[in-house]
Amino acid sequence: MPNENKQINHVAMVGDRTIPPKDARFIEIYIMGQRYKVPETLTILKAMEYVGYQFKRSCGCRGGICGACGTFYRILGDHSIYTGLACQTVVEPGMILAQSPFFPPNRADHIGILDSKMPPDEHIATLYPEIFRCVGCGTCTRTCPMGIDVMNYIALFKRGDVLGGAKESFDCIMCGLCVVRCPANITQMKVGLAGRRIAAAQLIPRSEVTKKRAEQVRAGRYETMLAELGQMDREKLKEIYTSREREPNLSGPGEWMPKDQSHL
């Protein structure tokens, strides 16, 4: 991937650029089969940038949460396939790596999943019947860079425990590495997503206080109070600000009420 933006190369940037210490040890890695020397301790992402890649795909948050940089690798002389996020995995000598820039996931239509009359477990089974073809190999679980027991959450959905599946899959960053490896062609990340949305909308009680407050807002309860704050001179505003009562850190839900209740 050549650098597209030559125009701004001169803008000095050190923030995320690698400046290896003088005595840095260099190791050999293979990026898509090509051999490069990079300083050890870099993440895969930074090692690729170090040798000159400018990412378009396969790079997003750079902090382990967006799922853009899923990577497969082997280590020379080791038959196993390993997986990791490029932004979170440190290079090792002899690493042979390739990123997964895109993979066609099967996504069922999720329209109507929030208020469907169908029982949640049946709904999941209808949207993603392939979960019943899970062969129980556990590759998904071994593949997950978030340490999720993926096979287990698929099993929970199969068993009809939608809430359990929703909770177990919660840490999913949707990188899709498990999907690429699944011999039964299950799209685990989409099953989890549908399950969580259904669970949150139908199986977990809605927040009554939130609903009540939203209704108060819609009825215009706070408009005059807020308008008054807008009219107030800064000194008066500061005075109110500094004298506001602070809810104690360890008070339980709905336990504490302020002395001044005129603006609630």
């Binding site: 927040s207 206080v209 939130t210 407050r213 939203a214 807002v217 706070y222 109070m225 807020l226 704050l229 505003l237 500061k238 109110i240 600000y241 500094t242 506001r244 809810e247 839900p253 709905g254 504490w256 009420m257 302020p258 603006h263 609630l264």
Partner: peptide, 16 residues
């Protein structure tokens, strides 16, 4: 959205 709170106090915290 909680009982001891309101948009008024939220406003004050934001502007302070």
């Amino acid at each position: 959205d909680q009982e001891p709170d309101s948009p008024y106090y939220h406003y004050l915290d934001v502007i302070g």
